[in-house]
Simulated scan of single mutants.
Amino acid sequence: MAAARLSGHEISDLCLGKPPLRSLSITDTVADALAVLRKSGEPYVSVWSCHHSFIRNKNHSNSKKDDKNCVCIGKVCMLHIICFLSQPNNLSSPSSALQSPISALISDHCPLVRHLRPNASLLEAIDVMYEGVQNLVIPIKNQNSSRKSYMLECLDSNKVVHNNSISYCWLTQEDVFRYLLNSIGVFSPTPSDPINTLGVIDTQNLLAISYDDPASSVLDLLHLSLSHQSSVAIVDSQAKLIGEISPFVLNSCDETVVPAIATLSVGDLLTYIDCGGPPEDLLQVVKDRVEEQNLGAALELLGDETRLTSWSSFSSSGSSDEDLCSGKNWRLGGYSGRVGRRSEAIVCYPWSSLVAVMIQALSHRVSYVWVVEEDWTLNGIVTFEGMLKVFREQMKAMC
């Protein structure tokens, strides 16, 4: 009975306190997306079919009252831009690549966002997410829909109002799991069961790479990790986990990391992005190799020294070197999942309970946990999507 009531909860309950989405138009450019991500400090920005662009709201010249087909068609993050600029043809002319339409960053084959009405049930939301959708776009009613209020909100870069009266927030799988955690007792005793008895350990879609491989070889894997909301493991010759290249960490970098990906090994790239910014000696190696490989145009991505040290800008507010090197991520407000040493990886064991793994992921603000044996041999990965299957089946069985 309790599970049935939980299943019927409206997703508007999960939207309380959610900020309105910042948005870009499909007509904006990669450079526009880069500017918004830098300014907002948020990991993702939404992309819309209409012209209510976060960039253009400053002069509201395209914020039309009669725009009737406002649809969120995707989301982009810094990693999308990094992977795009790392393509060989874009490395030869980064400035031209930045003027490409934002549609170049969005895959038509993997729709990660979907609109859903605010009175949809929690179970409906879980069903949609089980299909692979990562973000649900939910309308937020504005208290004042007058023309004057609309124009003021269009001038407010923190709010994007569509169709003259509606702004939107979005819900993630993380939001759903935090909500479920508050009612975890409803699902007893399943949350206490070991994950190796629940079929949630994914051993088929493991994304892994060797420490000594070229960093450029990780790009395709990073694209896949965004789709799976996972990460790329770094393993040694005995298949033991020694680190990872995490989308969550790369989202806290910027385009200055692109030349490093083009010229360094996986291991050196970890050092390059570790502790908030590149060591001077490794930065010089990157510059030298860019010249040797006739990629001189890519040097413009490095910018000046101020840009290169901006990765660790949050340290000026009092963060210690220990926090920086332990994988603390200023943008996400928690552990990023990056590992400079094996002991820092977010891992669990096959006999760990489902609720323990769930809490690990939520507390570290990531959507996956690596599964290892006692000797750190990589066994698999548990993702939100895999855990969602367990709760979905229980909720359907109890309804």
Rank of each mutant, 00 (worst) to 15 (best):
S167G: 11
Y168C: 12
C169R: 06
C169L: 09
C169F: 13
C169G: 13
W170Y: 11
W170D: 10
L171P: 03
L171F: 04
T172F: 09
Q173H: 11
Q173E: 08
Q173G: 13
E174G: 12
E174I: 03
E174T: 14
D175N: 15
V176K: 02
V176M: 02
V176T: 03
R178F: 15
R178I: 13
R178P: 07
Y179T: 05
L180E: 05
L180V: 05
N182R: 15
I184H: 10
G185V: 09
G185H: 15
G185K: 14
V186M: 10
V186N: 09
F187N: 03
F187E: 05
S188N: 12
S188F: 15
P189G: 11
P189D: 05
T190I: 11
T190M: 09
P191F: 14
S192V: 03
D193R: 14
D193T: 12
P194F: 08
P194V: 04
I195F: 10
I195R: 03
I195T: 07
N196P: 04
T197L: 09
L198Q: 09
L198S: 06
G199M: 07
G199H: 13
G199A: 08
V200E: 07
V200W: 08
I201T: 02
I201P: 01
N205M: 08
N205P: 02
L207E: 14
L207H: 12
I209A: 04
I209D: 01
I209W: 00
S210V: 00
Y211G: 00
Y211F: 08
D212K: 09
D213P: 00
D213E: 03
D213S: 00
P214G: 07
P214R: 00
A215C: 03
S217W: 07
S217V: 07
L219Y: 06
L219A: 06
L219R: 08
L219T: 05
D220C: 06
L221M: 15
L221Q: 12
L221K: 12
L221W: 13
L222W: 00
L222N: 01
L222R: 02
H223V: 13
H223M: 14
L224R: 06
L224S: 11
L224F: 05
S225P: 00
L226Q: 01
L226N: 01
L226H: 02
S227D: 15
H228N: 11
Q229G: 04
S230H: 03
S230E: 11
S230A: 13
S231I: 03
S231D: 12
I234W: 01
I234S: 00
V235N: 08
V235I: 15
D236N: 14
D236K: 03
D236R: 02
D236A: 05
S237A: 06
K240D: 11
K240I: 05
